[in-house]
């Protein structure tokens, strides 16, 4: 009672009836617009995409915001290695069949499409080693603390300084079944590793032996296993889960 404004607005009952009819009409139109809008949006399908085109645009809009906000100085929290846990195999695309690890090689391709180099695992493991214990996050919502061992991608990129100026890094498995494309900034982040160890042991084939991507900047869908080709490119390459309706940037 006390904090009720004594000069409350009032109107005559007759005017209130008119206002009621107008409000009812406004409400009906609003309800209609909201229902048709949301229904139309969810029925909208863009060619070659699994989500409505308008929402794909919002994904890209969001990416632009977070890419602008991005800083290589912001690091994912790290944990004590004793907190690392075994992690389940969630995706088998591109690693379903066993390969002969001794036959594996890694092609480095430049922005012009030419192969710059072909490396074997000894070339990779000769790069500076580091281990990091971070929370690995799946786009499905689960997470697990694991220790990755490998070398910062930046160490490899430093070997090809001209090519590494390119905007995107596109990677694929030997069979070409799985492929991802990542932005240059995330790839050069100090916590983005080319990993050959998981929880202090060599990677199993289902976890991506002999070499996979490991980064707390992206969901697991971007952390490609069993990399056969790394292409520095100014063109955003194909991305397996983006083609299936997920956000391309998928930045954490």
């Amino acid at each position: 009672m006390s904090d009720q404004n004594p000069r409350r607005k009032t109107m005559s009952p007759e005017d209130f009836d008119i206002r009621g009819r107008r409000s009812f009409l406004t409400g009906l139109i609003g309800l209609g617009l909201a229902t048709t809008g949301i229904t139309a949006l969810s029925l909208q399908s863009a060619e070659g995409d699994r989500i409505p085109g308008a929402l794909r645009n919002v994904h890209d809009f969001n990416s632009a915001i977070w890419q602008a906000w991005y800083s290589p100085d912001r690091l994912a929290p790290t944990f004590d290695p004793s907190e690392a846990r075994p992690i389940r195999v969630n995706g088998r695309h591109g690693v379903r069949e066993e390969i002969d690890l001794d036959q594996w090689t890694l092609d480095i391709v430049g922005p012009d499409g030419n192969t710059l180099d072909t490396l074997d695992i000894d070339d990779i493991t000769a790069l500076p080693f580091e281990a990091m214990t971070v929370e690995h996050k799946c786009v499905e919502g689960w997470s697990e603390i694991v220790t990755w061992g490998g070398t910062a991608f930046a160490n490899l990129a430093a070997l090809y300084p001209d090519a590494a100026e390119a905007d995107f890094v596109n990677m694929r498995t030997p069979d070409g079944i799985y492929y991802v494309s990542l932005d240059r900034e995330s790839m050069l982040h100090p916590q983005t590793l080319l990993a050959w160890e998981l929880n202090d042991r060599p990677l199993t084939q289902l976890h991506g032996a002999p070499l996979r991507l490991a980064t707390p900047l992206k969901y697991g869908i971007k952390q490609i296993k069993r990399i056969a080709q790394i292409e520095f490119s100014n063109v955003r390459g194909p991305d397996y889960w983006t083609e299936r309706g997920y956000d391309w940037y998928s930045g954490l």
């Binding site: 969810s42 308008a54 929402l55 969001n62 786009v139 499905e140 309706g245």
Partner: peptide, 13 residues
Amino acid sequence: LARGLSFHFSFGW
């Protein structure tokens, strides 16, 4: 999931 994420990160704004 993909549709859920796309709606969630749009309507969230």
